[in-house]
Simulated assay, not measured.
Amino acid sequence: MKSINKILYCNYKLLKKVNSFYSGKINIIKTWSRSSCIIPRFVGLTIYVHNGKRHLPVFIKREMIGHKLGEFSFTRTFRGHPKGKKFVRNDRRKK
């Protein structure tokens, strides 16, 4: 959990979108603000966070409060380890 002394940053436009979602004006919340903190008002919402290429859906849970939105929208894809070379251990112990 974040320190209590630090000020939490949340983008003003994102807050406006969340309020208009609760009032029924919009259906989807998209944001480019990866640095915004997750506040308790976001719990239960699915926010589409931009990862540099596309918007990825992030379902907000209670445990995520205090973290940044960008922590849950990954920017790099893991394609696996290289298949070519495997590490072979030489077992040269004295018997």
Rank of each mutant, 00 (worst) to 15 (best):
K6I: 01
F78P: 04
E71H: 12
R79F: 15
N5M: 10
K94R: 15
K30F: 11
V43T: 05
K17V: 00
H55C: 08
K86D: 02
I7M: 08
C37R: 07
I28S: 06
K53H: 12
E71N: 11
K25Y: 12
T31W: 14
S3E: 07
K94E: 11
N11F: 02
V88A: 09
I28Q: 10
F78N: 13
I26R: 06
P40A: 07
G80I: 01
E63F: 08
E71C: 10
G44S: 07
I65A: 00
K30L: 10
V58Y: 02
Y48G: 08
R89M: 08
N11V: 10
P40N: 10
S36I: 00
F42W: 03
L45I: 01
S73A: 14
N90E: 15
R76G: 03
K53G: 04
H67A: 01
K13E: 13
L8I: 06
L14V: 13
S35K: 09
C37G: 08
N11D: 14
I26W: 14
S20C: 09
H55S: 14
H67S: 09
T31F: 12
R54L: 04
P57N: 10
R76D: 09
I29Q: 01
R79W: 11
S36C: 00
V43L: 12
R92S: 15
R76S: 07
N5G: 14
S33D: 14
K17R: 08
F74A: 07
L45H: 01
I26E: 13
S33E: 14
K53N: 09
K13I: 11
K2Y: 00
K13P: 12
S36G: 06
D91Y: 15
R62S: 12
T46L: 05
T46G: 05
N5L: 11
L8A: 13
K95W: 03
E63R: 10
H55N: 15
T31S: 06
V18W: 01
V49Q: 09
K13M: 14
I60G: 12
I28M: 07
G52A: 12
L15D: 07
C37P: 00
S20L: 11
S33F: 13
K30T: 07
L69C: 06
K61N: 12
G66V: 05
C37Q: 06
F59K: 03
R62A: 08
I29K: 01
F42Q: 02
S35A: 13
N19V: 05
R34G: 01
M64H: 13
Y12P: 01
R34E: 12
F87Q: 15
F78E: 15
L69R: 03
T77W: 11
I65E: 03
G52F: 00
R54I: 07
N19S: 11
R92K: 12
K25S: 13
R76Q: 07
C37K: 11
R54P: 03
F21Y: 05
I47T: 05
E71Y: 12
L8S: 11
S36R: 00
F78R: 11
G24Y: 01
T77L: 14
